[in-house]
Design a protein around this nucleic acid. Structure first.
Lengths: 218, 218
DNA sequence: ATTGTCATTCTTGTATACAAAACATCTTGA
DNA sequence: TCAAGATGTTTTGTATACAAGAATGACAAT
C-alpha cells in the first residue's frame, strides 16, 4: 500500500520543523516548498493542511501558514495532559496486560537499560518510546493508544532534549522500574502514579525544559 | 476574519454525516459533492482531507474516502477516554476555579435545570455542553480544554441520542449537582469521580448506547 | 515630516486540465 | 462455460491557469 506524495511531504516538513530548519514563526511559502520538493503547489498545500490539523503549523486565511512551536506555557500544558493519558494507560494496562506483553515490557525495559549503560541517548530514546507504546497498547483501548501516540509524537523533540540532561537517563530508568513493578503487581493506582511522576514536568525537569527553550526564544 | 469555503464545506459535510444523510461505509464522491455545493473538486478535497484528519472519514489512497462511524467497541473506548479527560479537567478545576467562574457554573447548571423542567432535550443538550465547557476552561489548561472540546464534538451525536432515553435527563442533572458540589468544596478527587460517573458508559447507559447503534448496523 | 490613499505586486484560494491508477466490461481461447 | 487478458471507463492525484484578497511602496495632501 503505497502512500501518496503529499503524505511523504508532510512527514518531511515535520522533520524539517523538528530539527529546526524552520523555526517558530517562519512562514512556509508554498511556491518555495514546491520548488524544494519538485512538485506543484497542490501536494504542498495538502501537506500543510495536514500539519495544520496536527497543530504543528497555524494557517491564517489569505495570509499563509506559519510554524507554531508551543511556548513554555503550552508545553507544560501538553506534558500535563500527556502525563494523565499515560497514567490512564498504565492503570488500565496493570489490569489488562497479558503475560506475553508483560514479557515484552520487560524486554523493552532491558533494552533501555543497555542503552543507558552504553550512554546511547538516541538509542535510549527509541527504546523508551517502545516501552511506552507497549503500555499504551496494553491499555486495551485502541483509541487511547492512538491519542497517546499522537501526543508522544508531538512532544518527541522536547523529550529528546530532556534526555540530554546529565543523569536524566539513569533517573528515567529508575522510574521505569517502578512502573514495571507496579504493572506486574497489577496495582493500577501505583502504576498510574509512577508513570505520572515519570512523565510530568516538575522540579528540576521544569527548570531544564525552560532552559532548553531559551535559544528558540532569542 | 472570514473563513474559507472549504472550511464551511467541511462543517456542512460533518453535519450531513451526523444527521445520517451519509451513512457508515458510504463513499463520498468528489465530483458529486462538487456539484451539490456548486464548487470545483479542490475545496471538496480539502474539506474531505480535514474530515479524514478528525477521523470522521477514512481515506483509502486511489480508492476514495468513506464515511467511518465508530463501531460499538470504538465508541466505548472513546467514552472511556472522554471520561478520563473530563475527570482530569474536573480535578484541576476544583483546585483552580475562580469565584466568578463558579458562579457561571451554577448559572449554567440552573439553565440545564430549566431545560429539564421544560422537557427541552435540545436545549438541555446545549446547556449541558456549556456546563462541561466551563469545567474544561477552568482546568486552567488550554491544551486540555481544546482536547476535551474536540472529543466532545466528536461524541456529540451519540450523547444527544443518550439524552432521549427516558429519565436520562433527570439523572444527568442529579449527577451535575454532585459535580458542582465537589468543585465548590474544592474536592478534586470527588469532582473527578463524580464526572467520571457522569460521562462513562456503564450499566444501563451501555445497553441504551448499543441499542441506539442498531439501526446504523443494518 | 507624517499620514492617508491608491496602485502594483505577491500570495493564497479556486477552477480546470491532464496523468495515472483502479474498476468494469468485453473478447478470446481452451 | 469459464478464465484470463485486453481495453475502455471512471475516479483519484497532480499540475497549471485564473481570480481575489492582502502587503508593500509611492505619491499627494495637510
Amino acid at each position: 500500500m503505497e502512500r501518496k506524495r503529499s503524505d511523504r511531504i508532510a512527514d518531511a516538513l515535520e522533520g524539517l520543523i523538528f530539527d529546526g530548519t524552520f523555526a517558530d514563526g517562519d512562514r512556509l511559502d508554498e511556491v518555495q516548498l514546491a520548488g524544494r520538493f519538485s512538485v506543484s503547489r497542490t501536494p504542498i498545500r495538502e501537506a500543510l493542511h495536514r500539519l495544520s490539523q496536527s497543530g504543528l503549523v497555524v494557517q491564517i486565511p489569505r495570509r499563509g501558514v506559519f510554524v507554531r512551536q508551543p511556548g513554555p506555557v503550552e508545553l507544560i500544558e501538553m506534558f500535563e495532559v500527556m502525563a494523565e493519558l499515560e497514567a490512564v494507560s498504565a492503570r488500565l494496562a496493570a489490569a489488562r496486560i497479558s503475560e506475553t506483553a508483560l514479557a515484552e515490557l520487560h524486554a523493552a525495559n532491558e533494552r533501555c537499560k543497555h542503552a543507558v549503560e552504553a550512554r546511547d541517548t538516541d538509542g535510549y530514546y527509541l527504546e523508551n518510546e517502545q516501552f511506552h507504546a507497549i503500555i499504551y497498547r496494553q491499555s486495551g483501548n485502541s483509541f487511547l493508544e492512538q491519542e497517546c501516540l499522537r501526543l508522544q509524537r508531538r512532544l518527541q523533540p522536547f523529550r529528546r532534549v530532556q534526555l540530554r540532561v546529565r543523569g536524566r537517563m539513569k533517573q528515567s530508568m529508575a522510574e521505569h522500574e517502578d512502573v514495571v513493578a507496579a504493572i506486574e503487581a497489577a496495582d493500577g493506582d501505583r502504576a498510574a502514579a509512577a508513570i505520572r511522576r515519570h512523565v510530568s514536568v516538575q522540579g528540576e525537569k521544569f527548570h531544564h525544559l525552560m532552559a532548553s527553550l531559551k535559544p528558540a526564544a532569542e
